[in-house]
Design a protein around this nucleic acid. Structure first.
Lengths: 237, 237
DNA sequence: GAGTGGTCTAGACCACCCC
DNA sequence: GGGTGGTCTAGACCACTCG
């Protein structure tokens, strides 16, 4: 295993176990070098992981300190949401997907630009509704180039497109660029999400990228506001 | 200046200038070492900055590639929103602040826990409305321990609390932990934000931290959905 | 002035990709 | 098998904080 991740995990474990308390100073980097038997750069990389996650802060000239957070916040930081950033209220629930639309079309100018393809290329045009324990959670409008992601069929959409991309096509998803807004549902969405026209939704506009840098998905998701929260940690540079 | 930041800036400049095109491979790390006259770790750190910003991706065994993004997206990545994550539509507009409430109270249990203080400590209890060119943008509910941030008066609230904390008190703001949801306004907010009861708002719940790790602010902001977007780049680990 | 974390070097070996 | 980026070392000097 990778040393710096193991060390980061170990320090994190000590913080959660209360071995290092809120506001307390961590051992010096030099001391940790001896303790774990590694060089200083490795310790630095490990602690930097914890800074990114939001557990500790570092100050040149002073030291490294555990942040003043309560147990609930610490739990939030611990769940693995580094990639998604989302916390949904449907763990362990039964997931079902309903396909509203599944066509192949030419992209308009805007979507061609966002996916960096030509307007005479083809894209899937997909609309799906996701349920957790029969409660509608989100409606997703997805456009994907058929060249990049060939062979999508109904049964793929009923499960997970991402699963298909990674496990069947053996492609790797690298990142997503997102814009988040608050909106109201249109009539179609009121029906599918079973909410009133005055029920607020969280809109997530997203471009997703493969690990060779190509954009493979442009999607807009409208989430029921009672079923989703977006959580994030921002560090000043 | 710091070498890796200068190099990151230079590569970013070349990407924006079209010297490296979408999908194109960057020079190898070894070559860049020669080109810039630095060691490989320094080049690595520079390129990692561009990965974080969303301009490029790296693949072990293959190389580093410019992401397939259009000019608009590239512009988005270029604006300095690494800390805030927000894009507001009020650049160069006249900002005004209205103070709705300004008291000192004891925190309730929840807020005491989030700020890691006792319920018999004191906190400022502030409600403000911010305008851009006389359009109401956001209503902010703020709680701050008076011990950490002493001396706040009306004129501080009319300008910027953050300016006061950093320039007057000489404290440094290190990070913020945020939760984002979609909601509807209550009656007070309908009046202050000049919107109907069915107008969606973006709620941002935030705990902010100083660079010694202490939580100095708990705030809830309700933004008019037509005036704010939250933008973010997520990288899979 | 003593001690902290930040940056940087010159080199090594490893995991992974593609031919 | 040849080449990529990822991890790691053992050391150096620097910028910053604090007494």
């Amino acid at each position: 295993m990778i040393k710096y991740q193991e060390i980061a995990w170990d320090i994190r474990k000590n913080i959660l176990a209360g071995k290092y308390l809120s506001g307390e100073q961590l051992p010096l980097e030099k001391e940790m070098c001896k303790q774990y038997g590694v060089s200083r750069i490795t310790i630095k990389k490990a602690v930097d992981e914890l800074v990114k996650l939001g557990f500790v802060i570092k100050r040149r000239g002073s030291g490294t300190f555990v942040k003043s957070i309560d147990d609930e916040e610490a739990k939030d930081l611990s769940v693995a949401r580094q990639f998604t950033g989302f916390t949904e209220t449907n763990k362990g629930k039964e997931i079902r997907t309903e396909i509203v639309k599944f066509d192949i079309v030419h992209p308009d100018n805007e979507i061609a630009a966002k996916l960096q393809i030509a307007t005479d290329d083809f894209v899937y045009d997909i609309i799906r509704v996701r349920f957790a324990d029969e409660i509608p959670i989100v409606i997703e409008y997805t456009k994907m180039p058929i060249n990049l992601i060939p062979g999508i069929k109904h049964d793929v959409l009923l499960k997970s497109i991402y699963f298909y991309i990674q496990c069947q096509l053996k492609l790797k998803i690298q990142s997503a660029h997102r814009s988040i807004r608050a909106i109201l549902p249109n009539e179609l969405e009121q029906q599918h999400l079973k909410v009133a026209g005055t029920f607020p939704l969280l809109e997530v506009e997203q471009i997703a990228f493969l690990d060779d840098g190509r954009a493979f998905e442009y999607s807009i998701s409208h989430h029921r506001s009672d079923q989703i929260v977006f959580k994030t940690v921002s560090i000043r540079q």
